[in-house]
């Protein structure tokens, strides 16, 4: 599933349970085109567009460009890629959520990679979680490792159980249906996986960089 890159505040924020006039909006500083139209700050509006058009069970992956008003530096880009995952059905639990994402992490890194989930906050998930994998540079030892700042863990994605308010905003019975969602930055994961030090390299399109991954 995919969705438009220019979105309305309704899809980008409010249908996703962002309260109006709330500091949670500050982390999503946006490019506005006029009125309530902005460049989407995440791929999560596609959750809403999907629920409006398809009945559960839903299991989708949503790749797409996202925009935040962050100036370029080594780890920030005003434009970045996101890959969203979203599953809605009867009987989906926190255990299914953890199992799916842990399996994904072990497939993309190594079958023995340690994974941990930590509490986090996103208005559209509850419980919310951040997933860490064992640092791929130091192997999780941590001590003196610059890549994981000595913690032994690398933050990979934000996720959680879909907030019932999101389902209710799409006229779905939140007592009957549950689900989970996650969003990750492929640039960030590629940086961790391949040891790329600066996100700007992705946008330079230097052929010597691109050839290393062709």
């Amino acid at each position: 599933m995919v969705g438009p890159e220019a979105e309305t505040e309704q899809y980008n924020f409010y249908a996703l349970n962002f309260p109006k006039d709330h500091p949670a909006l500050d982390a999503q500083d946006s490019f506005y085109l006029g009125g309530d139209v902005l460049m989407r700050t995440h791929t999560s509006p596609v959750q809403i567009r999907t629920l409006e058009h398809y009945p559960p069970p839903i299991r989708i992956v949503v790749p797409g460009r996202c925009y935040r008003r962050d100036p370029f530096d080594a780890s920030h880009s005003p434009v970045f890629e996101q890959i969203e995952g979203f599953a809605i059905d009867e009987g989906i639990t926190f255990v299914d959520f953890k199992a799916t994402l842990a399996t994904f992490a072990r497939r993309i890194f190594t079958p023995t990679t340690n994974v941990r989930f930590r509490p986090s906050f996103f208005p559209f998930t509850e419980p919310s979680a951040e997933m860490d994998v064992q640092c791929q540079i130091c192997g999780g030892g941590g001590s003196g490792c610059a890549a994981c700042k000595g913690t032994g863990w690398m933050e990979i994605l934000g996720s959680g159980m879909v907030h019932p308010a999101v389902l209710e905003n799409c006229n779905l019975d939140s007592e009957k249906y549950t689900g989970f969602a996650w969003g990750m930055g492929p640039e960030r994961i590629a940086m961790l996986r391949y040891g790329i030090p600066d996100i700007r390299l992705f946008f330079d399109s230097d052929v010597r960089f691109l050839e290393q991954f062709s």
Partner: peptide
């Protein structure tokens, strides 16, 4: 649901199993 999150995080996210179960494919 906010209280359920409190239960989950205070119990520790690590305390929940992560065993894959069967699922229904989606309609999209």
């Amino acid at each position: 649901v906010d209280l359920i999150e409190e239960v989950a995080r205070l119990r520790g996210y690590d305390s929940f199993p992560d065993e894959l179960r069967p699922y229904r494919p989606g309609t999209v």
